[in-house]
């Protein structure tokens, strides 16, 4: 009797296995939960890995203070439904402490997330952070381990990573060091959407086509919000858009789309010609190596 499980079952099984290794090997892990689609897949995987028991880790959101309210409401609702503890570590707190000093009041805050994350790791003594990063997102990620070692400063050193063989994951660390575990490393954007469809996962409404005020700036669609106002000479349009990724308001752009169901989004994803980050992450376009640089500084 010859059998092989389907690719979604295989990806799910691999992710469950990785999460259970974190639970088995780490003393004090945490799951990074943003309310975004990738971290929602992580939550479903955690349910499959640990129910009927509780998750062996709390959830944590690094809140830049620049989030779409739909996403924040969704985040709180989801944590509540699951009955799991949610820690919110906020950039505002780091700013008040003086550990984050903005150069300009309205500048994008994504890069400062690392500081708040590292402070939270220190405060709660986390030895492992489970994140929803995928290797297909970006070329610095293509070389990322499933269990990625970070030193006391949270730094990723691509030259000093542990070889990772078979499905044997070494999550051992000394006090102060930590592991970033990426259970959906081997998933692509399409896999994520297919999984959302199969599992009938709820998503924040901004992932689906909706009307929004935007301006067009250097090829990108920039949403108009209180932190990203239109410049005086810009023409504001009301466009039907959806978000492919959800992050800090100042660096996440929507795409023009009529796709208002998961099924339609999958059709669109299948025929898209631009990568997820290329289209919607304004911060990765700055330089060819910007993700690599951020990871070295302690980013996910």
């Amino acid at each position: 009797m010859k059998e092989k499980i389907s690719h979604l079952d295989w990806l799910e099984s691999e992710a469950i296995h990785i999460m259970r290794e974190v639970a088995g090997q780490c003393a004090n892990p945490v799951l990074l939960f943003s309310g975004g689609k990738d971290s929602l897949c992580l939550l479903r995987i955690a349910e499959k890995a640990f129910r009927p028991g509780r998750f062996p880790f709390p959830l944590m959101h690094i809140d830049t203070g620049h989030n779409y309210p739909e996403v924040i409401n969704f985040r709180d609702k989801k944590a509540n439904e699951l009955g799991e503890r949610l820690i919110v570590a906020s950039l505002e707190d780091s700013m008040q402490k003086g550990t984050i000093v903005l150069k300009q009041k309205d500048e994008p805050r994504n890069k400062y997330q690392s500081i708040t994350l590292l402070e939270a790791i220190e405060e709660y003594e986390f030895d492992c952070c489970i994140g929803g990063a995928r290797r297909d997102e970006e070329k610095a990620r293509a070389k990322e381990r499933i269990m990625s070692f970070r030193d006391e400063f949270g730094q990723w050193d691509p030259k000093n990573q542990r070889p990772e063989l078979w499905n044997l994951y070494n999550a051992k660390v000394h006090k102060g060091e930590n592991i970033r575990a990426f259970p959906i490393s081997n998933w692509t954007e399409m896999d994520v959407w297919q999984y959302i469809e199969r599992e009938k996962l709820d998503l924040p409404s901004i992932y689906f086509a909706h009307k929004r005020d935007i301006v067009r700036r250097g090829g990108a669609i920039v949403p108009i919000t209180n932190v990203t106002p239109a410049k005086p000479d810009e023409k504001v349009e009301n466009l039907t858009v959806r978000f492919r990724t959800v992050g800090d308001i100042t660096c996440t752009a929507p795409v023009a789309s009529e796709a208002d169901t998961v099924e339609k989004i999958i059709m669109e994803t299948a025929s898209t010609v631009i990568t997820e980050r290329g289209e919607t992450r304004l911060d990765d376009q700055v330089s060819e190596a910007s993700m690599e640089q951020r990871k070295k500084e302690g980013y996910f």
């Binding site: 070329k139 293509a142 070389k143 081997n186 692509t188 690599e292």
Partner: peptide
């Protein structure tokens, strides 16, 4: 690959790629 690799003209590590 990485900036570090381009600078030194070497490849450091196993990279994973996907297609379907």
């Amino acid at each position: 690959g990485l900036q570090a690799e381009r600078e030194q003209g070497i490849t450091i590590d196993v990279a994973y790629r996907y297609f379907s």
